[in-house]
Each structure stands twice: as C-alpha cells, then as structure tokens.
C-alpha cells in the first residue's frame, strides 16, 4: 500500500500551480498589450482613393493646415476638404494625373470622394476640435507629425487614458497660439515647456474637464 502513487506525483500540485501562474501572467500581459488602441489603432494606414501626400502639400509647398481643414477653428468637427478645395489648384496643376482620377470623377458627378476614415472616436465621445486648437493644443498633439506623412496613419492611440494624460496636466502640451499649425515646432526644453504651459494655463484659464460629462453625453 505504501507506494500507490509514484514519487513524481508529489510535484504535480506544485507544477500545476506554476503553470497556472505562468498562464495567468501571459494572458494578463497579452490583454494588456493587445486589447488597447495602442495596438489596435496606432499604425492604421489604409489605402485612400487618392494618394494624397501631406508631406508634399505642407512641407514642400508650405500650405497651412487650414487651407483644406478650413473649419477646424470654428467647428467641433475638423472637415475633410470638399472636392472644390482640391480642384482650386488641380483643375490646372497635374490636371490629367491618374492619381487624381477620383477627384475629377467627384467634381464631375457631384458625389464626394470616399476617403477612408482613420481617426475614429466612439459615438459617445464628443470631441471638439475648435476648443482644442483655439486654446493651445496643436494638431501635432493628437495627430503626430502628420505634415511629414506621405500616407496618413494614426500616430496616437486616442484612447481615453491617453486623453486624460493631457487633461490632467495640460501644461505639458500647450503651445503659443502662433505655433498651433506649425507641426515642426518644439519647445526649447521640458522645463521651458512646463513654465510656458503653466503660464498659458493660468492666463487662458484652462481647466480641462476630468468628469465624465466633459466628453460623454
């Protein structure tokens, strides 16, 4: 009766415990790593009907963001430009380029170019572009170095935790109003940013909402 179980059986409970701990850790780690917009959304770079390059238009030609996104300062929604905006130049410049076929088709038919939306807030989030750009938050803070992108991709996760990083400490990100649309601008140093940001926060009475109702309705 004494050796009913083999010797190795003594270790089975411990080994099972170890496996359980390792599996739980790996699963938790996997969820932490993958179940967030940092993984699901950042880097989303779909093909667009027109291979529009921000890099050419902003960096090479020096155009302002607001030439196309003309209502970003007054509207909650930052508009994707209408076809007429493209045609203002492209009726003459590269007017036969095959890359612009969708623009010309839209101009003739009157139905909009079907751009693929990249940045998507859930429908219960009420993000307002105007209040941000008019109070020192640059395009850069949420869209990254979009001025250098040949094809646009999502640069920031735009998750709620990410929003709150700035809502809790806006002084780390606020810029002088003259540099909002200059995406190449950088503060001289972190200390200078903090000093400047703290001053703007006070002068402009910036008090970003941290309550649910600030962004959710």
């Amino acid at each position: 009766m004494s050796n009913f179980f083999p010797r190795w059986a003594n270790w089975v409970p411990l080994k099972l415990l170890l496996i359980a701990v390792v599996l739980t850790t790996v699963l938790t780690g996997g969820v932490w790593y993958y179940f967030t917009p940092k993984y699901t959304r950042v880097g989303y770079m779909p093909d667009q009907p027109v291979p529009f390059s921000h890099s050419i238009h902003v960096e090479q030609l020096g155009m302002d963001c607001r030439y196309c996104h003309s209502f970003v300062e007054v509207s909650g929604h930052s508009n994707v430009p209408d076809t007429q905006t493209c045609m203002a130049c492209h009726s003459q410049i590269k007017s036969t380029s095959p890359k612009l076929a969708a623009v010309r088709a839209s101009w003739e038919s009157g139905s909009p170019v079907q751009w693929v939306r990249i940045h998507k807030a859930p429908d219960y989030v009420y993000f307002n572009h105007a209040v941000h750009v008019n109070r020192g938050v640059s395009c850069f803070s949420c869209h990254g170095q979009i001025n250098n992108m040949t094809t646009v991709w999502q640069a920031e996760p735009q998750s709620m935790a990410w929003c709150l990083e700035c809502h809790r400490a806006p002084e780390k990100f606020l810029r002088p109003p003259s540099e909002i649309y200059n995406l190449n601008w950088r503060p001289a140093s972190a200390a200078q940013q903090l000093a400047m940001g703290t001053q703007f926060k006070k002068e402009w009475n910036i008090n970003p909402p941290l309550t649910c109702g600030g962004c959710h309705r």
């Binding site: 790593y33 179940f35 993984y39 959304r41 779909p46 093909d47 909650g76 859930p122 429908d123």
Partner: peptide, 25 residues
C-alpha cells in the same frame, strides 16, 4: 504595437461605438 497596416482596426468592446445618428461627413 504601432506597426503600420491597412487592415481595418478590430474593435474589442464595440459597445455603442457606432450609433445610427448622423454625424459630420
């Protein structure tokens, strides 16, 4: 994380993310 790709992002908890209301553009 952060790898560029063309695939439509998966939505893990899509609760009420897409409501039938009309939104800009």
């Amino acid at each position: 994380r952060g790898q560029k790709g063309k695939k439509t992002p998966i939505e893990i908890f899509p609760d009420m993310d897409h409501q039938p209301k009309v939104k800009s553009q």
